[in-house]
Design a protein around this nucleic acid. Sequence first.
DNA 1: TTCATGCTTCGACAATAGACGAAGTGTGTT
DNA 2: AACACACTTCGTCTATTGTCGAAGCATGAA
Lengths: 231, 231
Amino acid sequence: MKEGPDITLLGSLIGDPARANMLTALMSGKALTASELAAEAGITLQTTSAHLGKLEGGGLIRQRKQGRHRYFTLADDDVGGLLETMMGLAAKKGHTRTRTGPRAPALRKARVCYNHLAGELGVQMYDSLLARGFLQEQADEDLLILSDQGRDFVADLGIDISPLNQSRRPLCKSCLDWSARRSHLAGSLGTALLEHFYHKGWAKRVEGQRIVEFSRPGEVSFQKLFPLIEC
Amino acid sequence: MKEGPDITLLGSLIGDPARANMLTALMSGKALTASELAAEAGITLQTTSAHLGKLEGGGLIRQRKQGRHRYFTLADDDVGGLLETMMGLAAKKGHTRTRTGPRAPALRKARVCYNHLAGELGVQMYDSLLARGFLQEQADEDLLILSDQGRDFVADLGIDISPLNQSRRPLCKSCLDWSARRSHLAGSLGTALLEHFYHKGWAKRVEGQRIVEFSRPGEVSFQKLFPLIEC
DNA sequence: TTCATGCTTCGACAATAGACGAAGTGTGTT
DNA sequence: AACACACTTCGTCTATTGTCGAAGCATGAA
């Protein structure tokens, strides 16, 4: 009768408070167990299980069994992107949560977006890579091209992109930021860079939050590596 | 307690079947009355009124009173963009409507996306404008720059962009396509161009559908105006 | 084997909210 | 003024579904 894709299922899945809490928790990129998600959403384990079943049925999350644990993650980058988009519109329309806590500034500065760096520092990194010609935007897609110089740049950091290139997941993608309404770097390279910052000890995750906290010397190094360049 | 914007309201608004029907109907870009939307969703007028109130409260739609009629439209381009994004993910995850009718190919070829042209022809137009340097993408936003040559190009078509420039609405924006997963042109210039095609008699809307039907000579003219150019 | 842990399934309850009939408001037409 | 039309508001009913307690499966440890 009617043509085209059906939005209803996606909407109703995201529309439930408990499920929305779980999804935003998973935006941290960490794989979480059912129990952790239950605590996050403030509901019992049985209810959580039902929700997880529905989310998986709708293709929003995936589960990996590992021993007697089951780890849940967002299904793919597209889901993360949709959630980020919705957060952007929600913020714009003034649908904010009960009270914007004192952590809001830290969250705007640097946070995890599913599995890569977002916030002001994320945007800065993106701009810097672009301005120096390491990354190039394409005309018609949100896929990005890593130039030869860019390849050298990440190689100097000690990041080997050859295994990343073989995976089906795109290497470089742009992702829109809800706070800044500007793009930052997603894709497997985005993930690798964030891992690099952790590994170098420049930054660490705040427990249970999406906030990424840079140490003082860590941020200095970051600023040196990704300087802001005027056009 | 919790930080950041709240997705729940948006999700639940979109998650109801009746409201989803109305919203997709409004994706046609036409301003519709409550009665028309009621017919579209297959519910009574009272129920429709309640839904419209909620949609307006959530910032998804706007109404303009005009005599004893009230015309409803999507609130802004962002809402259209979100719906298009969700359609993309829904299509990818296989959440299709009951039966994809025979009109699906026509819909993929050319359709209205809120108020501008989408589908294969929309993507072609976008690519052609970009390849000839009439449009330029920016590094960090989905806003586009209309070059001087581009300005001349649209002026030759008889489109006066000076009033468009004064409005708060952006002149050129890129919008992602659910069928092609590539960008097409949104913004007030996108709207003006679609109007131009209607006015020239190249294309017309299929009644009650999002399909844009090009006449044979109309498509020829379109192809001549927006040729595909190899990089 | 026995026990503990992590999660799922079943069944029942309760709250939400979507649906419509009936009546009310406001605007334009005659 | 009287009427028609477009829509809103009110009240009520119904169905959905989110919720939890209790029991049932797995997996790993003792």
